[in-house]
Design a protein around this nucleic acid. Structure first.
Length: 275
DNA sequence: AGCCCATCCTGTCCGC
DNA sequence: TGCGGACAGGATGGGC
């Protein structure tokens, strides 16, 4: 579900409500989260009494900082949700972790139907190491020159795979890669190193425009995505190609949108407009 | 180096 | 209604 705009929306909602709160209890409710801890992880109980000092996003990862140099590193993967709810609200079997606070009637829950996501209990220094090792730059902080450098550095990759590779650029997933390529009028099978100056510029601007607009509309609500406060996003109304197989292209109004698998991911594009 | 596929899970939807 | 298969916003690791 969540790509950069959705994760950014969740983080903004949580940051405004949780910064400065002190932890009354933090618990894992399901054993699979334990198995996903990495060497150097702490026990959840260590967070008791700590105060939240900040919440931020890096790529699709969420980092919650606590005093005492402690952190939580969260990845929602496909079906993960991080949301605030009234303390005592009934939990279903997919809720796997819960963070409670002093003098605050809401609690933070981690819910994940497919269990691909993780919540790692780590020192902030280790989180920093991990995200810097595993993630490329933020697409909205990157310069055009840096963007072009990366296109050429991984010039043999198809554009679709280039956009999806978190080590090259962090935060873009399957929906936004297709929407970005459509607006840039570039074929997802093109090789990253094959773009001329104009095309590289179009891709760069398209990525910026799509991601910024999606953030301003609070992400895309397909299926059941809602943010940390239970609100739906609005960018799904602006989708031009994603999940539009067989429908007329909204640009040329002639050709039908087609779907092809690239690296196992469904990829939607207009064969006439995107060359 | 990069592609393809299987894999980690659960739920939904579609065709028969 | 039931059943089997395909598919789903992500990421990794093995084989080629």
């Amino acid at each position: 579900m969540p790509e950069l705009p959705e994760v950014e929306t969740i983080v903004r909602g949580l940051r405004a409500r949780l910064t400065g709160r002190r932890v009354k209890a933090f618990v894992f409710l399901s054993p699979h989260l334990e198995k996903k801890q990495v060497p150097g992880s702490f026990r959840p109980e260590i967070y008791q009494g700590r105060k939240i000092t900040g919440i931020r996003r890096r790529g699709k990862m969420i980092i919650i900082s606590f005093d005492g140099q402690l952190g939580l590193l969260v990845h929602l993967k496909m079906t993960g949700q991080l949301f605030l709810t009234d303390a005592g609200q009934k939990m279903d079997k997919h809720t796997h972790a819960c963070l409670k606070f002093y003098r605050f009637k809401k609690e933070l829950r981690f819910r994940d139907i497919r269990k691909f996501g993780f919540v790692n209990c780590l020192a902030l220094t280790r989180i920093e190491e991990k995200i810097n090792r595993d993630l490329g730059p933020e697409p909205l902080s990157l310069s055009l020159a840096g963007f072009k450098l990366l296109l050429n550095k991984h010039g043999q990759k198809r554009l679709k795979n280039w956009l999806l590779d978190q080590k090259i650029i962090a935060g873009i997933g399957n929906i936004y890669s297709d929407e970005i390529l459509f607006r840039a009028r570039l074929n997802p099978f093109r090789l990253a190193g094959s773009l001329d100056e104009k095309e590289a510029g179009r891709l760069f601007q398209s990525a910026r425009r799509v991601l910024k607009e999606a953030i301003s509309l609070k992400g895309s609500s397909i299926s059941d995505y809602v943010d940390a406060l239970g609100n739906r996003g609005g960018f799904q109304k602006r989708h031009q190609v994603y999940a539009r197989e067989g429908k007329n292209c909204l640009r040329c109004r002639q050709e039908k949108i087609i779907r092809r698998k690239i690296n196992g991911r469904s990829t939607y594009f207009c064969p006439a407009c995107q060359s």
